[in-house]
Nucleic acid binder design. Structure first.
Lengths: 340, 340
DNA sequence: AGTTAGCAATCGAGCAAAAAGAGTGCTAAC
DNA sequence: GTTAGCACTCTTTTTGCTCGATTGCTAACT
């Protein structure tokens, strides 16, 4: 299936036009707006060809054409022109990160916010849990009679807290000793390391088994439990787009967006490549993404994964803009953090 | 304006019916469904009377009637029958709090979740910031070269963290000393106390001014900044209700729900009384609540305010159910926490 | 062989008129 | 005070019609 240059050009025009107007595109509008050199009849026969190839769909005989899922895929891979951010947009991004943001949670939330603002779509992101984060501080102290509180602070200023039941007979001094032991053993190590040295540590901790298990639980919990860290912004921006003028569709979209498990899966896929990945939900395609598209990017700074970010919206999404924004935010963010 | 018993009865029936069907209620449906002993003509004249009194509205001549804002107010105050939770519902609530939930944030989020699940409306809640929470632990340690991290843990397991710039020449021992000083001075005190003893403390802290100011900032920030702690669940449950079948209305509702500032104000009003408070948004009434109703309750356990919770939804809300759920959750929650 | 103009055919959008249905208010009788 | 009956009002649904947009096809043109 080889497309002539002119077919490609026309397909691109159709998609661009459809993305900006949300209306089926007619042969006439193409010649008038973009291609004064050929007649609409010619365009018509090209359109018919593109339809035959499965790139265009005609909602009904007397209407223009809209792009198929295939067409979008081709578009994002080959046809789409890469956009550049305006100075204003770059300013907005930089501004969003002006405040101190060493805390990873905050970085994520600022990034998600600015992405949503600039693209006018629902955006989401979550901090990757690499298990490679080093522990900076670990502390245990009595909180109630039989309950101690465990605090773990990491490089990224994730602070994890957890209650641990302690036996009646345990004295404050013993708790203190356990706490010191923990610091000696674990500070400077990352989560994965700790899990692997578990056996050996258990030996040293035999007097403080409850506490040791509590710590291990907290760490496992952290690595498994991605759920709490997904952040979303502009859920209702979807209402700004005309294809969602019907409440039934909004419902559908929101149900996609609300099932965080599914989203986390989607965001987690191929999060190795820094490049922008685009998933287009067909009628069948990516399950759980019915009629939606998801554009994601994973950022790293100084070799550390600083989260996966994405935009979710109608299939008729302004990919060009979304991609530029994601790339722009990534670039600025990475610069910013590297120069720290 | 005195209503006869029969008028009251009929008004109640109209509201009940309208709440469950979302359709204007006709005289005929009243006699058929609820009052077989009198004829529809009689009901009609009563309805006409209630309309004259401002309790009912006729969208157009040939339709049934719907309740006015006044009617809802009367309904929630006098007419509505108080519901009881079913065993199943009570089970669901207890189940939601089965896990350990001494952490206030968690209590709030579980409560909000269960309220939304049981009522099928958007629910929200936030932990009150009383300033009366005692500090359990306060700690400072070096985090980067010129940055220390301040951790404050309170009774309610609120953990507050904040970066503090520290001068180059400061040694780890000095940081340690400052940290100890802080513990001695502040542990066991509540936030308000600390703010009032500020002057005196400043004296003792003259060598660690940056740190002292950082602590004070963190505390002030905590007391002022309620924003971050509002939790919402089921924003899109609104779509389950037929009056929001139009995207424009959904947009409107979501914009109400998204302006957290306004919501915090609403939730904060009269949060002294434990009773359930119902605000019905008229066309003019409670600003920011256009066409919505908000039912809120504030819970306390052992005399400590444990948060304000609410349900926001269409004016045609199932007040009976919402009130029972809010009361039920409150009762169970208070029991649970008192018996700890 | 590719391009174009011309034209009939198709189908949705929009509109008005007609029909159907729901509910009321009023009147007169009970 | 209550009720049956009925004319009246207004919405909703249906129907039919026109208009306009757009296409696909054919025949002519370059």
């Amino acid at each position: 299936m080889k497309l002539s240059d002119r077919k490609k050009k026309i397909l691109q025009l159709v998609i661009d036009d459809y993305i900006s107007t949300a209306q089926p595109v007619s042969s006439k509008s193409i010649t008038e707006k973009y291609m004064n050199d050929i007649s609409s009849a010619t365009v018509r026969s090209e359109l018919a060809g593109l339809e035959e190839l499965g790139f265009l769909i005609q909602p009904h005989t007397s209407s223009g054409r809209i792009p198929s899922v295939e067409a979008y895929k081709l578009y994002v891979n080959e046809l789409m022109e890469r956009g550049k951010l305006t100075g204003k947009e770059i300013g907005a991004i930089k501004n969003a990160f002006k405040e101190r943001t060493e805390n990873l949670e905050e970085v994520v939330s600022f990034a998600v916010k600015v992405i949503s603002d600039l693209t006018d779509y629902t955006s989401l992101g979550f901090a990757a849990h690499s298990g490679k984060e080093k522990i900076v501080k670990i502390d245990i102290f009595r909180y109630r009679k039989n309950v101690a509180l465990l605090l773990i602070v990491t490089e990224n200023t994730l602070i994890k807290d957890k209650y641990i039941d302690i036996p009646n007979e345990m004295t404050d001094d013993q708790i203190k000793e356990a706490s010191n032991l923990l610091s000696d053993l674990f500070v400077g190590k990352n989560f994965s390391e700790i899990l692997t040295i578990g056996e050996k540590a258990l030996e040293e901790f035999k007097n403080y088994r409850e506490i040791f298990e509590g710590v291990m639980d907290a760490i496992e919990d952290y690595i498994d439990n991605k759920n709490n860290d997904i952040i979303m912004e502009g859920e209702n921006k979807i209402l700004h787009h005309p294809e969602y003028s019907d409440a039934e569709k909004v419902k559908n979209f929101l149900s996609v967006v609300t099932s965080k498990d599914r989203l986390i899966d989607l965001l987690s896929e191929d999060n190795d490549n820094i490049e922008v990945s685009i998933k287009i939900g067909g009628d069948e395609g990516e399950e759980g993404l019915s009629d939606c598209s998801l554009v994601t990017a994973t950022y790293t700074a100084s070799g550390v994964n600083i989260g996966t970010y994405g935009v979710i919206g109608p299939r008729r999404m302004d990919y060009q803009k979304v991609v530029s924004v994601l790339e722009g935010v990534g670039r600025i963010l990475e610069d910013l953090l590297d120069n720290k």
